[in-house]
């Protein structure tokens, strides 16, 4: 009887120890996986998600890596991340310098997404915000050097809205005008056609994550000329005549 009880205690003990071993091993593994998953949340700046993609942290929960967006992309712009690439495994992305987004009118990639990782509420490709083009290098940009390259401006699907050319005096020659490409975040979709088309060996204009490049004015900030435009005239009537401060003894 006592023997039987002893063996039962022993087998219970063995069971508990075995369970503890497996549970601890699995938990350690889980911690490793969690740290890795946190790392995988960080998207390299040069990687662009398809149009309509949720913000990266939400995208990681929503995208099931089926590749249906890739299949319906007519220009083979989109690809799925492979093992070893610095993008969360199996998720879709594109590199503008390789193949940019051609901004299909009917958004086949968004239509194909079964989970809503690419938001169906995006129905107008002009409203997509995949990133923001930035003229990152003013030292090599040919237009900045005073030449008339204009390629980024010409290829922009939203020419004269997303990219405009602003005339500026060329102080080097003293008599010419530089046409400086300016990107307007209000219109830029981040399609990457400018980055793709830039004639330099390394593109001087690049599409980057919007939150990385965009500044933000303080909420209290008011731009006088805009306030004036809105009000239809100066907010302060007349010219304020401040007292002239002259040296006291009139030196």
């Amino acid at each position: 009887m006592a023997e039987k009880r002893a063996s039962r205690t022993l087998s219970r003990r063995r069971f508990l120890v075995e369970t503890a071993v497996t549970a601890s091993g699995a938990s350690l593994f889980g911690m490793g996986l969690a740290f890795y998953a946190q790392q995988a949340n960080a998207l390299p700046a040069y990687v662009i998600r398809p149009p309509g993609a949720l913000p990266e942290t939400e995208f990681q929960a929503a995208c099931i890596r089926c590749g249906l967006c890739v299949r319906d992309c007519p220009y083979e712009t989109l690809r799925l991340s492979k093992l070893g690439e610095p993008v969360a495994l199996g998720t879709p992305y594109f590199l503008a310098r390789d193949i940019p987004c051609e901004m299909c009118e009917h958004l086949p990639c968004v239509q194909a997404c079964p989970t809503g990782a690419l938001e169906k509420s995006l129905t107008d490709i002009d409203q997509a915000r995949m990133g923001l083009a930035v003229l990152t290098d003013q030292e090599t940009c040919l237009n900045y050097l005073g030449l008339r390259c204009d390629v980024c401006y010409r290829v922009c699907p939203l020419i004269d809205e997303a990219i405009t050319l602003e005339p500026q005096h060329n102080r080097r020659s003293g008599k010419h005008t530089k046409f400086i490409p300016i990107v307007h975040s209000e219109y830029c979709t981040g399609c990457g056609k400018c980055e793709h088309a830039c004639v330099l060996e390394v593109s001087a204009i690049k599409v980057l994550p919007k939150q990385l490049v965009k500044g933000e004015l303080g909420k209290h900030y008011r731009l006088g000329w805009k306030e004036q435009e809105q009000a239809g005239g100066s907010l302060i009537e007349g010219i304020i005549d401040l007292p002239d401060r002259l040296p006291e003894s009139g030196l």
Partner: peptide, 29 residues
């Protein structure tokens, strides 16, 4: 881990889908 990190965690390392997706879309490593 999926709950804590808000990611489809297993799919980051799942050999089954990695290989299947790999054969169809490109293997990588």
């Amino acid at each position: 881990v999926a709950y804590v990190t808000g990611t489809i965690a297993w799919e980051l390392i799942n050999p089954v889908s990695m290989v299947y997706r790999g054969i169809i879309f490109g293997m990588g490593l």
